[in-house]
């Protein structure tokens, strides 16, 4: 069970300002059914651009509903200029905190607000900039970079908690890590979890390592090595030239080839001669 604050619980059970403002001046919609949460924010402003009425509709978990409710309470009576300064952190503070896995609920609030204000001002909603990094939740590198700059996020899991990227199939974890390294500098502690390689990646890396680290030394002694197959973590190779008749070949295989492959590709690899 999630550790929700009393305030989250209270706003979930008795959400404020549910519904749609009629003839709204600004409308902001984010999320979708498939993503698991969505928010539609509508507001009306007076002649001084002060928000006179604001309502929300939310599909999502308790913290998504509470975050939306909190957002509308924060917005009431504010000018658009003041409203623009509201961030997801303000929503979290208002609610007395959110579980870290639920931070994206507050981010959704901020995004909907941004869209609703853009809608009011007639600023064209820009097509998503940048390249899509997380295909499952449609998050771009630009969004990830922005999140990294604005919040104290250090590992892939933090990014997932904030903007969902990486929360689906996990294919993009490597790319997210690159973005983290890029924005935060290399000295940020990496996630301990070893990267999972696809078979293709593994084969490529093995080939590269053979070419770069292994073949030159073997060739010096008149030998060579050839990659036959990769089956899971079993790397099947064939020794050529002088190596194929060398008595020390098994030692070369284990102490040199396997060691290098484990160092550069994956620690679980087992090299065998076929």
């Amino acid at each position: 069970m999630w550790e929700y604050t009393d305030k989250v619980r209270e706003h979930f059970l008795n959400p404020r300002n549910v519904g749609v403002v009629e003839n709204a001046d600004g409308v902001g919609e984010v999320g979708s059914l498939s993503c698991g949460d969505a928010l539609k924010l509508t507001f009306k402003v007076d002649e001084n651009e002060r928000i006179t009425d604001v309502k929300f509709q939310t599909f999502g978990c308790a913290s998504a509903i509470a975050s939306s409710s909190a957002l509308t309470e924060l917005l009431k009576g504010k000018t658009l200029e003041e409203a623009e300064k509201i961030t997801n952190d303000d929503i979290v503070t208002y609610l007395g905190g959110l579980p870290k896995e639920k931070m994206h609920c507050s981010v959704m609030g901020q995004e909907a607000l941004g869209k609703a204000i853009a809608c009011y001002r007639g600023t064209p909603i820009e097509e998503k900039e940048g390249e899509i990094v997380c295909e499952c939740f449609g998050v771009t590198d630009v969004e990830i970079r922005n999140a990294l700059t604005a919040h104290p996020l250090n590992v892939v899991e933090d990014i997932t908690n904030y903007i969902k990227a990486g929360g689906g199939c996990g294919k993009c974890h490597e790319r997210i890590q690159e973005l983290i390294d890029e924005v935060k500098g290399k000295d940020v502690p990496k996630e301990e979890k070893p990267q999972k390689l696809t078979t293709i990646q593994k084969i490529r890396m093995i080939e590269e390592t053979l070419q770069r680290e292994i073949q030159p030394s073997l060739k010096k002694d008149g030998g060579d090595i050839e990659l036959v197959d990769v089956n899971g973590n079993q790397v099947q190779v064939r020794l050529r030239g002088a190596c194929s008749t060398c008595k020390a070949a098994q030692i070369t295989l284990k102490d040199f080839v396997e060691k290098k492959l484990r160092e550069f590709v994956a620690a679980e690899l087992i090299v065998e001669e076929v």
Binding site: L13, G36, A62, E101, K164, G168
Partner: peptide, 28 residues
């Protein structure tokens, strides 16, 4: 969404589970 349903049911003392993403601790 399932988590919302479960928490509302919990207010009435009814215990059940959901296959929704928010209850699993993941996003899927």
């Amino acid at each position: 969404e399932g988590e919302s349903i479960l928490l509302m049911m919990d207010e009435l003392g009814i215990c059940a589970s959901s296959g929704s993403a928010c209850t699993s601790g993941s996003l899927e």
